[in-house]
Every structure is written in C-alpha cells, then in structure tokens.
Amino acid sequence: MMANQSDATRNNSVGPVLRSGEIADAVIQALEEDNPGKEFVIQDHLAYVRIETENECIVRRETLERALGRPFQMPELEVNLTSFSGRIETTDTTMRFYLEKRL
C-alpha cells in the first residue's frame, strides 16, 4: 500500500467517518438500502468507522429512522459524524457525499 503512496490520491471514495456505535450501525444499514447496487467498504478503526463507496452515496432520514426504530432528525447525525471523504450536501431529509470529478 505504501509503495505507491503518490498515486493514493487517485481514488473516488466518498462516505462518512462515524464514531463507533448504534448510529454508525444504523447508517451502514441505511446506506446499503438507499444506494442499491453500490458496494461499501467498511473499515473499523475502534474509535471510528470509515464507510466508503465509489463517487456518490446518500443517506435518507426515513431509512435511518427505520433502521434505528425511532424518529431521527438529520442534524443529529452530526453528533457522530467526525469526518467524511468527498464533499457533503445536507437537506432536511438527506445527507449526500459525492465528488464532482471522477479520476
């Protein structure tokens, strides 16, 4: 992995980095449901979980609420969202991670 360090920027990975716990588990479940056909790579780093897929993914409030089994406001996601790869777009009901350019 280290040998081609300078090529490592050539990736199209996007997605949230979450603090480990209930919310992270629910987000993983919701992402898989909201982005059919997409493969997610999930890396567990103890304190944080990195969730990545190619180019774009979206998480929806209603899917997240179903996964959690309780009402959920999108801004609450921030409590556990420590970082993310790619760009972000937030609305009342969605959070989207994306890149403009494909490498």
Binding site: M1, M2, Q5, A8, T9, N11, N12, S13, H45, L46, R50, S83, S85, G86, R87, L99, E100, K101, L103
Partner: peptide, 23 residues
C-alpha cells in the same frame, strides 16, 4: 499501536484530503 503515523497520513491526508484538492 493501531497504525503508523505514515499510514494515518496516508488515510487522512493523502487519500482523503489531497483527493479533495483535485475535486
């Protein structure tokens, strides 16, 4: 030790941040 500093740099700065520069 979870990862080396270089590996963390790779994950956070080279893969994630520098990728955003290009975007």
């Amino acid at each position: 030790r979870h990862m080396s500093f270089k590996e963390f740099m790779h994950e956070w700065v080279i893969r994630q941040f520098e990728r955003q520069l290009k975007d």
